[in-house]
Write a protein that binds this DNA or RNA. Sequence first.
DNA 1: AACAAGTCTGAAACTTGTTCTACATTACCG
DNA 2: CGGTAATGTAGAACAAGTTTCAGACTTGTT
Lengths: 211, 211
Amino acid sequence: MTADAKTAGAGAAHPASPPLTERQEARRRRILHASAQLASRGGFDAVQMREVAESSSVALGTLYRYFPSKVHLLVATMQDQLQHMHTTLRKHPPAGETPAERVAETLMRAFRALQREPHLADAMVRALTFADRSVSPEVDTVSRLTTAIVLDAMGLEGQPTAAQLSAVRVIEHTWHSALITWLSGRASIAQVKIDIEMVCRLIDLTVPDPA
Amino acid sequence: MTADAKTAGAGAAHPASPPLTERQEARRRRILHASAQLASRGGFDAVQMREVAESSSVALGTLYRYFPSKVHLLVATMQDQLQHMHTTLRKHPPAGETPAERVAETLMRAFRALQREPHLADAMVRALTFADRSVSPEVDTVSRLTTAIVLDAMGLEGQPTAAQLSAVRVIEHTWHSALITWLSGRASIAQVKIDIEMVCRLIDLTVPDPA
DNA sequence: AACAAGTCTGAAACTTGTTCTACATTACCG
DNA sequence: CGGTAATGTAGAACAAGTTTCAGACTTGTT
């Protein structure tokens, strides 16, 4: 339950905690790949630690040294995917007129990507919201990544204001929770779209009419 | 994994599926009480099915007949608590001027109630967001209850518009997700407050100036 | 009152996340 | 190169959610 600083060799997000050797980096990558693969098949439940270990040719104990729990593993998997998405988005930025439109467009694009791998989405999002305090640092990294993506989409001039940051947090809340309701079959794709567009209108309230 | 209509004797929310006998009603109540009690102590992890069974003087198999999984049990516990809250709120409605103010006030009141039992809150909210499709009907009941509370707080005249319903959904999303970040120590109470107030401003966008 | 169907109990078994242990390998240092 | 501490491996062991089963108890029916 506690998450003390173990002697673990695999860090969180910053690729620089203890300098991983090449073989270790390779192991870490194999594990993340296996995790994503299994998740794509059957979602959260299909990611079984023994199977991840076997698929990535690593002993169970080693898997746990790299990722201290299943949730840690899946959150790291999400970090990985988000990173991809972020670089992709940077290459093809949203084209909308207003910040609100651009953010909505960005999120809908991400949503469509998730629709292509609903099981993977399930595994990652469930892990993210189920994570307890021991995973906070990693979840926080995911959150910062998401925030960065949204702020990028807004395309602000200077630093965001406090109100804008709050709006972005609310958008993230809505994003996660809307995904959950979609994944558990309680909301349609159309509904998620509507809600995302709705919450993005908050941005208009915090951006003084540019004109 | 599947959630077919079992021969189970304990229904979901509508107190009328199969007519429970008195002793069964009592059992169900004992179980929910034990669940809430254990949850108040140590949150999600402290609600152990064997302990719930023992505390409520019921065999493990019986517990599973009433609530087909730990998540079902905790979601039902949440239904129970929400019901209380709803009746309490009806007796003491929020006093704000505008719909947005009243909703924010209501949610903050609920938030303060949760702060008094953070472990219980943890158990319920984690269960709610971790629930998979097999729990959808029950989660949906919770959602409808929450929606009813928010709509009550808005104090509309007629039926809510589509935009208003979307705004309420967004508020619920924010509510759940903000609670999660608070429970996992990634957001302060103050931050949750700010975000709730921020999202409630959406209501203003959907309610034409009454004057 | 006796019976049949449905419920409840107690206990064991099974699954999967997590931990532990004893031993092999690897990486680094002199 | 030899030594040693960290890292990795295989596999058993443990914990808690879930399932299963044989037998006892309730309930409703005739």
